[in-house]
Design a binder for these strands. Sequence first.
DNA 1: CGCATTTCCTGGTAGC
DNA 2: TGCTACCAGGAAATGC
Length: 268
Amino acid sequence: MPELPEVETVRLELEPILVNQKILSASLVDAIPAKKYQDLELAIGQTIKSVNRRGKFLILELSNNLELIIHLGMTGVIAFKEFEKHVRVKLELENNSLYFQDVRRFGRFLVVKAKDYKSMPTLHKMGPEPFSKQFTNKQFFTALQKSNTALKTYLLSQKPVAGLGNIYVDEALWQVKINPQTKAKDISLAKVKRLRKAIIEILQASIEAQGTTLNDYRTVSGEVGEYANQLNVYGHTGEPCPRCKTEIERIILGGRSTHFCPKCQNIN
DNA sequence: CGCATTTCCTGGTAGC
DNA sequence: TGCTACCAGGAAATGC
């Protein structure tokens, strides 16, 4: 499930291939629901000026003050070769063709006016990038103070910081020994500082491993991400905690699988 | 408005 | 072999 490290891995591969290439055509194949594939015809004839990322969204800057927004959802994969099944978009470029595959249709591929994200509430209200100077201890603490929700659930909202999904939230909270059910506003400043640091370090380490492949995620060149080998709690239900050997528990929080060590991450 | 819950979607798999 | 039931989760939609 692509989160920030997986999307950044894809971005790093796309950037040198796409920048300064013109989009010659855009075709949709079984691209349903239509709402997730809007206005691609506006990209035809435009040149890709830059390949950026905001949280889990890829944002391709086009020459006519438009942006091509791509979200991989759960099963989105981008490549420069044909897929056998589940292709939704083909972009013909000058030097090659980009294909977007999405088995479960959670992904999006659409053109919007630059910086106009009103129709995309998550992107519109997204917190700072974790590697930016805007992501500070003060900002993070202030953001968390605003929410009465379980910390894990609030982190998944993308509001306090961008890019975290189910895997990296569980990993970061285990790293700093915070119970995922703790209310966001109850986290002390000292713990917020450690959590901020852990988030940055874990995301960085995963980018270096080209992300986490559990099932569908692939890099643009078709490789798997190797960070799955470094996960401590996600998907490790019933296995011993790498720190204290207590069995890792799995609960449902905000409708999502949540993995944690009941001893290390005891409610305080 | 905040927060909780439900919905979308399909392949893989467990159980029979 | 084939059927049903269930699970995975990011973001949007809906409900309260």
